[in-house]
Design a protein around this nucleic acid. Structure first.
Lengths: 184, 184
DNA sequence: GTCTATAATTTGATAGAC
DNA sequence: GTCTATCAAATTATAGAC
């Protein structure tokens, strides 16, 4: 009986993640989440006293899932080129399979209106991504690994947004191809 | 006496644009806008009956301003390389001077929660950008001008978000340099 | 952990006077 | 064009029973 539905907190985060990635931080209400989970909104406050707590927990879990998924996608690969490919795939799956933009792209776009603690978690996600990418480009002996890391992350986050608005996956794929071509 | 403050509608749009670019569509309220403009929220409905009307008018004006600003930045230039540089500068000025992310990046991130008419205007903005960029890359005899256009737009929109979250303009500049280097 | 009940505030929106 | 007055609904949040 160890299925995911046993944990109410994780169910709350599941619903919150989907709705926030669809419509942003302010579009998500305790009442709507509670309705979908099947409890009352007052009960939500037991798990996450303030909305800010829900926001930070959400981004933290998202970052951890991203990390775990990356490890899975990398599998047995040990060449940096293939690790970058796994990284790009990580983002692509989120967009195509679930039809959702990266949580941190959505929250990042609203950055000047977010609680400071939520912004801090989004920043950690981006910095972790940049550090990891920089390490890969270093291993590939690129001249300016930090620059490569910055452009790769920006490309993926931006491509998700433009792709979603225009309902056109070829935008994401152009970005992905540019990143992969640069690794050859 | 032809100053901008004469037109209440444009004052409303000024405040709405700034706050939406800071915190997203749902973070902006009629009451807050009215307070800053110095009128009552009921009066706002005279100019924009529904919030959806305000949203569409906002994106339409933003797209037009972007177009006008691009023409100014291009100036006497007639080489496509320099036109692309003006395009990049257009985005950079928004971020650095005003400290704000592109309106359409912010709204685009919330795309699955926006009124359909607002989404449509954001899509027009992106498509216009893509068409213009494609024309420039065609003139430069690039092999796949549409791909170049897609990656350039995605890079700029994504770079604004990551730069803003990390309070680090070098992220935007890495993206800008990649675009400009590709034009040489 | 979840509930009922409730509070204080904010939201988009309308009617009608001036 | 802007105002007052008003509305119904939604928001985050708390107190206290079970």
């Amino acid at each position: 009986m160890m299925n995911a539905d046993m944990n109410t907190a994780s169910q709350i985060l599941d619903v919150a993640e989907r709705t926030m990635r669809q419509a942003g931080y302010n579009a998500v209400s305790y009442r709507d989440i509670a309705g979908e989970v099947g409890i009352k909104s007052a009960s939500l406050h037991y798990h996450f006293p303030k909305k800010e707590d829900l926001g930070t927990a959400l981004v933290r879990r998202y970052a951890e899932k991203f990390r775990q998924n990356l490890i899975e996608n990398i599998g047995e690969q040990n060449k940096s080129q293939n690790k970058i490919a796994a990284f790009v795939l990580n983002y692509r799956q989120a967009l195509e399979a679930q039809g959702l933009i990266c949580l941190c792209a959505v929250l990042g776009a609203e950055v000047f209106g977010l609680p400071a603690s939520v912004t801090a978690e989004v920043k950690v996600f981006f910095e972790t991504n940049l550090d990891w990418l920089t390490a890969q480009y270093e291993e590939m002996n690129k001249a300016h690994p930090e620059d490569h890391a910055k452009t790769t992350l920006a490309l993926l986050e931006g491509a998700m947004i433009v792709s979603a608005v225009n309902s056109d996956m070829t935008i994401f794929d152009s970005a992905a191809n540019l990143i992969l071509a640069d690794c050859k």
